[in-house]
Computed example of a mutant assay.
Amino acid sequence: MSLALARLPSRTDYVEEVYRVLLDAISDGSLAPGERLTQEEIAEQLSVSRSPVLQALRLLKKDGLVQDAPGRGLLVTPLDPQAIGKLYEVRGALDALAARLAARRGTRIDPALIAAGRRASRGKDVKALIDADVAFHHALYEASGNPLIAQSAQTHWVHLRRVMGAVLQASGSRDAIWDEHQAIAEAVKAGDAELAAQLVEQHTDNARRNLLERLGEVLAERSA
Rank of each mutant, 00 (worst) to 15 (best):
R162F: 02
L148A: 15
S144M: 05
G145Y: 09
R162Y: 08
W157M: 14
L140T: 00
A166L: 12
K127Y: 11
H137A: 05
P147V: 10
V134S: 06
D125E: 09
T155F: 11
A128G: 08
A166I: 10
G117M: 06
R162M: 02
A170T: 15
V134H: 09
R161S: 03
G165L: 04
Q169V: 13
I130V: 09
F136L: 03
H137R: 04
D125N: 06
G123S: 07
V126F: 04
Q154D: 14
A115I: 06
L140E: 02
R122C: 09
A135S: 11
G145H: 14
Q169P: 13
A132E: 08
R122W: 10
V126T: 11
A139V: 00
V167P: 03
K124I: 07
L129Y: 11
R119M: 13
A115S: 10
A153R: 00
R118L: 04
N146K: 10
H156V: 14
A170F: 15
M164S: 07
A150R: 05
A116M: 12
T155K: 02
R119K: 12
Q154K: 11
Q154R: 15
R119T: 13
I149T: 01
A115H: 10
R161T: 07
D133V: 04
A150N: 03
A116P: 10
H138Y: 10
A166C: 11
N146S: 13
L140V: 09
A116Q: 15
A150V: 08
N146V: 11
S152W: 05
K124V: 08
A115E: 11
G165I: 01
H138C: 04
I114Q: 01
D131R: 08
H156N: 15
V134E: 08
A115P: 05
H138G: 01
A116D: 14
H159F: 06
V158E: 12
L160K: 03
A153Y: 03
N146P: 13
A116S: 15
E142C: 02
G117Y: 00
R122T: 13
D133H: 06
L113K: 03
R162Q: 04
A116K: 13
P147I: 07
H159K: 10
L168H: 08
G165C: 04
D133F: 08
G145Q: 13
V158Y: 12
A139T: 02
T155E: 11
R162T: 01
A120Q: 02
A116L: 15
I130E: 02
A143V: 01
S152R: 05
A116Y: 13
G145R: 10
R118N: 08
D133P: 07
S121F: 09
G165A: 09
K127D: 09
R119S: 13
S144P: 09
K124S: 14
F136I: 05
Y141N: 00
A139I: 02
A132H: 01
K124L: 12
G145A: 08
V163P: 02
T155C: 12
Y141G: 00
A153C: 12
L148W: 14
N146E: 14
T155D: 10
A116V: 08
R162P: 01
A166H: 09
G117K: 01
K124P: 08
I149M: 03
Q154V: 09
I114A: 05
R119C: 12
K127S: 06
D133C: 07
V134Q: 09
R161W: 05
Q151Y: 14
Y141W: 04
A132W: 00
H159P: 07
R161A: 11
D125L: 08
G145K: 10
R162V: 01
A128P: 00
Q151S: 11
P147T: 10
